[in-house]
Amino acid sequence: MSSTRPPLPEGYSPIPPGHVANVATFLEMTAPPEHRPPQIYAPDLTLKPWKDADLGAYRALFKLIGENWLWYSRLKMADEKLSGILRHPDVEVHRLFRGAAVAGLLELDFRTAGECELSFFGLVPDEIGKGAGRFLMSEATRRAWAKPIKRFWVHTCSFDHPAALSFYRRSGFTPYQTAIEVHPDPRLTGHMPREAAPQIPIIE
């Protein structure tokens, strides 16, 4: 027996079954932070360039960091396109280490003249809340503004860690745009396991 549901309230738009939607917030810095904190000294944390990253290893780390937040873009991207990004001379890819263990990922994209995009910034689950994020952001900001840029920008979304937006604002970014993103649910396309991001419902 089919059920008839009442129409959605005014102002709401339905999302097609098999898709997910999130609110993306875009933030920017147009100058280095005036009161930039001193470079954080953390003897057990090191940031190392990841040159010529193996795509399998890269995607494994990307998935480990982003699975809870539905990071999917690099999982479905064609190998040739992903390789072209990671090996581009104007893209910096770094891994964060705590001792010998990989703790996070940082990507800085300088491909647009005068700008740097904080493309990916994340920690492995065990590192969240231990101060590694502050160290990683300090390094990201320092490296970005060491180049002749006029704008450093990032976007986050409502699928990300609940503290992500406030963290970026505390780090010196200012919100300037919001947008709605709708895309196929990667848990239904086979790019992520169905149990990923259980806080986000699957609607088939």
Rank of each mutant, 00 (worst) to 15 (best):
M1V: 11
S2H: 10
P7M: 04
G11W: 14
G11K: 14
G11N: 15
G11D: 07
Y12D: 07
S13Y: 09
S13D: 15
P16I: 03
P17Y: 14
V20I: 15
A21D: 11
V23F: 10
E28P: 08
A31P: 09
P32F: 00
H35F: 15
P37T: 12
P37D: 11
Q39T: 14
A42W: 03
P43T: 00
P43Q: 02
T46G: 03
K48W: 06
P49I: 01
D54L: 06
D54F: 01
G56C: 13
G56H: 12
G56L: 11
R59Q: 09
R59Y: 14
A60E: 13
A60R: 12
K63Y: 14
K63I: 06
L64D: 14
G66V: 02
N68F: 03
N68A: 15
L70H: 00
L70C: 12
W71Q: 11
L75K: 01
D79A: 14
S83F: 11
S83D: 13
I85C: 05
L86Q: 00
P89V: 06
D90A: 11
D90Y: 06
E92T: 01
H94Y: 14
H94M: 09
R95A: 07
A100E: 14
E107T: 01
D109F: 09
D109E: 08
R111F: 03
R111S: 09
T112V: 14
E115N: 12
E115S: 14
C116V: 11
E117A: 13
L118E: 00
S119G: 10
F120G: 09
L123Q: 07
V124P: 06
V124L: 12
V124H: 08
P125Q: 09
P125T: 02
P125Y: 03
D126M: 11
D126V: 14
D126P: 06
E127L: 07
I128C: 04
I128Q: 08
G129I: 05
G131V: 03
G133K: 05
F135M: 06
F135Y: 13
L136H: 02
S138K: 00
A144I: 02
I149R: 01
I149D: 02
I149L: 05
R151C: 08
H155N: 08
T156D: 00
T156H: 04
S158G: 11
D160R: 10
A163D: 07
A163G: 02
A164N: 08
F167P: 00
Y168L: 04
R169L: 03
R169Q: 15
R170L: 11
S171Q: 05
F173W: 07
T174I: 13
P175Y: 01
I180F: 05
I180S: 04
E181C: 15
P184G: 04
D185P: 10
L188N: 07
L188G: 00
H191C: 08
P193S: 06
R194D: 10
R194Y: 08
R194E: 15
A196N: 11
A196D: 04
P198A: 01
P198R: 01
I202H: 00
I203K: 15
E204L: 10
